[in-house]
Amino acid sequence: MEQGEKLRKLKEIKRKALICFQCGVCVGSCPVAFVNEKYNPRRILRNFLFNQSPPQLNLSNLPWLCLHCYACLERCPQNIGLSEVMFKIQHLQFLNGEIPSSFLNAVKQIIKTGRVSPVTPITERRREQLNLPKIETETGVEELKKIIKETGLKKLLFSQEEEKRSG
């Protein structure tokens, strides 16, 4: 993706989030921050707003720890919607190739099978035990693949793999 496009997306996040006055109510509401002292949503946002510029974000894996539980979003006095901002930061990280492989693999699983969790022989046996209808072959997968292509996700995933191979 072009640097100009990334820069535009970065500016868009900043425009929305610069009104943060660092009160920390997000930290007090955050279950991740409660158990993991490295994760501090207030600090992540501050560092992102003032210290980072593309192409290197170097935010580590921390933003991916956000559970998107929306506890902070309900309480933010500035109505920033931090959970939504976190999605956009994650998106920029993805564009920079800073994405945990477990995330990528889960998305690839959805694209390949139409489901986030696979149908295994255990699944089929359990469903039979419970008298549940058999899982039909996924007729939706072809349409899903077309949507992935039309919306540009396929290209983004492909260019990442290219970069990894060459870099």
């Binding site: 994405i99 939706g140 997968v141 540009g152």
Partner: peptide, 28 residues
């Protein structure tokens, strides 16, 4: 039953990667 459906899609993965994809698959 709705046999033609796929993953909703999962609310944290697809949305982070590409919001447009997330919206379209859910709308489908």
């Amino acid at each position: 039953d709705m046999p033609e459906t796929t993953c909703c899609p999962e609310p944290t993965l697809t949305k982070a990667l590409n919001q447009k994809t997330w919206l379209a698959i859910a709308a489908r």
